[in-house]
Amino acid sequence: MTPQSEDHKAEVRHYLVGFALALTLTLLPFALVAWGGLARMQVLTIVAICALVQIVVHFRYFLHIDFSRQKSEDLHLILFSALVLAIMACGTLWIVFNLAGRM
């Protein structure tokens, strides 16, 4: 086997692990909601935790962003973009609810 084919196999294995984790973290909340056996707050908590873990899985397995020195610039860029989007969304909601309260 050539080193190139071994790298390709490792990369495919990396993507398959990411896909399996993402699929599991998607199907688990759907199953909990469909089953309906838990209290509403427990289901919401589990769904929120699965969503946060899935964000980490997508960063790690599909975007190849980890805590290594060379990838930290990409992580900083993504976190800054998320911060700007959160500020814009929260500011918009603040203005809309303030206007709704004044109507």
Rank of each mutant, 00 (worst) to 15 (best):
R40E: 11
I87R: 08
H76D: 13
L21K: 04
L79Q: 12
V47K: 02
I65S: 09
D7C: 12
V53F: 13
G37W: 02
A10D: 09
C90Q: 08
R60Q: 13
L93V: 06
R69S: 15
V96D: 00
W35P: 11
S5C: 09
A100K: 09
F19M: 15
A82G: 05
K71H: 12
E11S: 09
R13V: 01
V12F: 14
E6T: 12
P3C: 14
L52V: 14
R13G: 06
L93D: 02
G91R: 00
H76N: 11
L52F: 15
F67G: 14
S72R: 15
A39G: 09
S81I: 11
F97W: 03
D7T: 02
L38W: 04
A22E: 07
T24E: 00
L16F: 01
V17P: 06
L27R: 02
Q70R: 14
Y15N: 11
A39V: 12
F80K: 06
I65Y: 14
A22D: 07
K9W: 07
V47T: 11
Y61Q: 01
T45Q: 11
Q42C: 12
A39M: 06
D74E: 15
C50S: 08
M88W: 01
T92W: 10
L75T: 03
L63H: 13
L99V: 00
L21I: 14
H64K: 13
M88K: 07
I55H: 11
V53D: 06
L28G: 04
L32F: 02
P3H: 13
A22N: 02
K9I: 11
L32Y: 00
C90T: 04
I78L: 12
S72K: 06
A82Q: 05
A10I: 05
G18H: 01
S72W: 15
I55Q: 00
V96K: 02
C50N: 09
L38K: 07
D74G: 15
V47L: 13
Y15M: 10
Q4P: 05
L32W: 10
D74W: 15
L23F: 14
A82L: 04
P29N: 03
D7H: 10
L27A: 01
L52Q: 13
M103K: 06
T24K: 07
A51V: 02
A86N: 02
E6Q: 04
F62G: 04
L77D: 05
V96N: 05
V96W: 03
H76P: 04
A39P: 01
M88Y: 07
V33E: 08
A48T: 14
D66P: 08
I65C: 02
L52E: 15
G37Q: 03
V56H: 12
P29D: 01
V33F: 09
R69E: 14
R69A: 02
L28S: 00
Q42W: 13
I78T: 12
A31V: 03
S72Y: 15
F62C: 06
I46A: 10
L21N: 05
S5R: 08
V33H: 08
V96S: 06
K9Y: 11
A48L: 12
L93I: 05
A82N: 00
L85I: 01
E11G: 04
T92G: 08
R102S: 13
A31H: 14
C90H: 12
A100W: 04
L85G: 00
Q4G: 12
Q4K: 15
I78N: 13
R40Y: 08
